[in-house]
Amino acid sequence: MTVRRLAWALALPIALFVLWDLAVRQRWVVEGIIPAPAQVAAAWYTWIFGTATTSLSPYSGTWLANVAHSTRRVIEGFLLAAALGIPLGVFIGWNRAVARAVDPSIQMLRPIPITAWLPFAIAVFGIYDASARFLIGLGAFYPIVVNTTHGVRDTNLLLLRAARMLGAGPAAVLFKVVFRSALPSIFTGLRLGIGVAWTAVIVAEMIAVKSGLGYVLWDAYYVGRMDICVATMFSVGLLGFLSDQVILRASRVALRWRALEAHG
């Protein structure tokens, strides 16, 4: 990134930070509810690097453990969603009978927000990781399956014919043409899915388990630690951004041929 582009990218966030700081200092907002940026930074620092002896805060030094909990749940739920969503999406997109049998159910279940599944998840899986896994997996599953289906259906007829006349059987057509052709859409689904997974993990941890960033967020709110709440929000945003970057990088490697297309 050039210096100029970096400057443009940073201008708005810096302005927002200044505005935030001013709002707290000038008491434009009700005093004591919204912490100043410096206060959040200090709380975040203690949360990450503090030890039980140097600070009285119960959050001291627990950041990494909570991040690990949340990240592990996101990865587990996301992988589950991908492992089910991609093959199912390929079958729905490829086979009309499967589409007729399965697609209407998916379309009917999809509008139910994952938050609405919370009581059901807790009733069935209890206050355990399984609840979180279920909610995250379900949330990420929809965008993955829908985009995979879409990508498969978009496969160019000419490429299918080309593969068949070159002697490709159904399996080769599916793996070497249909799947490869759907890959850009599948990656779109994965990126949307990881976003939903972070939403779902916060919701799940607020209620269905007793650890992780979502749990800390709700706990800090209850005890009036708004600085920790804001630090948690930033943490989730950062993790969401990083995980999206990981998928984006992976897609650039897998779809190298497509980058060339854009420039050609």
Binding site: L159, A162, L166, S181, W257, R258
Partner: peptide, 20 residues
């Protein structure tokens, strides 16, 4: 009955596999 490499086709648009 069905497509076969014994009757190979060159299409108007080359129809190459873009990922290969």
């Amino acid at each position: 009955q069905a497509p076969h490499p014994g009757r190979a086709v060159v299409f108007q648009e080359a129809a190459l596999f873009p990922w290969y």
